[in-house]
């Protein structure tokens, strides 16, 4: 199952990344606080980043394209957090709540 040539196999990093991503998905679906939804998105992005870094180190060790992609993902995550929290503040000003169940403007 695990490659015994290296001490920590690639699979171990991938398993950690999978667990982190799935916890993020569960939190994204089930959180009622809007700030916690944003935190869950950050968790999912971190899981993806661990994946990219693990592949970059184990398979692509001399070109490290995965690390460059991780830098881009970190940039996009920072922009997303800024815009998301600004939207959250605007929503809170209009609705005076952060309950996700009360944000039903797009419900038909």
């Amino acid at each position: 199952m695990f490659n015994s040539q290296e001490l920590i196999p690639l699979n171990a990093y991938l398993l950690i990344a999978s667990i982190l991503f799935c916890i993020g998905v569960w939190g994204l679906i089930n959180s009622r606080n809007a700030v916690r939804v944003l935190m869950s998105i950050e968790l999912m992005l971190n899981g993806v980043n661990i994946n990219l870094m693990a592949f970059s180190s184990y398979i692509d060790g001399n070109i490290i394209r995965g690390q460059v992609f991780t830098v881009f993902v970190i940039t996009v995550a920072a922009a997303e957090a800024a815009v998301g929290l600004a939207i959250l503040l605007s929503l809170y000003r209009n609705r005076t709540t952060v309950d996700m169940e009360s944000f039903n403007l797009l419900k038909w």
Partner: peptide, 28 residues
């Protein structure tokens, strides 16, 4: 939703473990 996430986790675990990744690659 917990069931769905557990299913996704099981799927990802299966892919992680059973795939033959091309390790060891070039030296880091």
């Amino acid at each position: 939703s917990g069931c769905v996430c557990a299913g996704l986790l099981a799927l990802l675990f299966r892919v992680d473990i059973t795939t033959n990744w091309a390790t060891p690659g070039p030296k880091a």
